[in-house]
Design a protein around this nucleic acid. Sequence first.
DNA 1: CTTCGATCCTGGTAGC
DNA 2: TGCTACCAGGATCGAA
Length: 308
Amino acid sequence: MPELPEVEVVRRGLERWVSGRTIDAVEVRHPRSIRRHTAGVADFAARLKGLRIGAARRRGKYLWLPVTGGGPASQTAAEGITPMVTPSVTHGLAILAHLGMSGQLLVQPEGAPDEKHLRIRLRFADALGTELRFVDQRTFGGLSLHDTVPGAADHLPDVIAHIARDPLDPAFDDAAFHDALRRRRTTIKRALLDQTLISGVGNIYADEALWRSRLHYERPTATFTRPRTAELLGHVRDVMDAALAVGGTSFDSLYVNVNGESGYFERSLDAYGREDEPCRRCGTPIRRRPWMNRSSYFCPRCQRPPRG
DNA sequence: CTTCGATCCTGGTAGC
DNA sequence: TGCTACCAGGATCGAA
């Protein structure tokens, strides 16, 4: 499933194959794949027509494409409400994407056979002969259209302003993250998956970073010292960089694939999915424990549970 | 305010 | 063989 490294690979693919192009038509094959658009899928499609796509952006697991050429995304007209004030500043607009668990963004030749789970198709007003497809088996992901935060240089969509910066973002604040950990009354894996504290980390990379740090997933965050937080962040970055290095080698093709690269990195995982296989440090069989309706993988010897 | 569990979804597979 | 149960899990929402 796509976490930060896989999403970054997709972002690079979009930058290479989609940015700069103008949308000609949008075909919505499954309404659930359009999120938070109360005016409906027809309105979504109509608003996108004629917009030009800018530089592809990412924060954590979210991707967005700033677009220009249209009006504000607010749906007051569709709801029959007259705006009290006409905004004097220009609204930015962006197409926001989340891949969920099974989403893919594919750049395909026009006329290529439809994928079984094709949900949305974007055609472009040029002669390049390719189109953008959102394919998603489980429909946990989707696209949406939003105003951007006024003045934000990255055109951040307003609805993800609460998502924390990710650990590969140069503006990520390590000291602030440590302070937030100390304030929380929770455990470390919950904190790593809390996208308002640190974004881009999912179940796989959380388990991998904790294994590298020799930390049990239930260690209380309030016990963390500055060096321990620094070491953990270092391992989070290392494991993501390693995955990105593998996935990033294959993106420069027409086919922007999520599943392809994560399959490569799967062979390098030390904890996730390795139940009963020997720990690569000490040989003790890796354990799997039910946790939050999913699983945690850890080495019972290297990653001792906290007292109590 | 923080914390935590239920919910959404479908294909693959284990078990009977 | 055909059926049921379960598993994968990110983000959101509402309850405590």
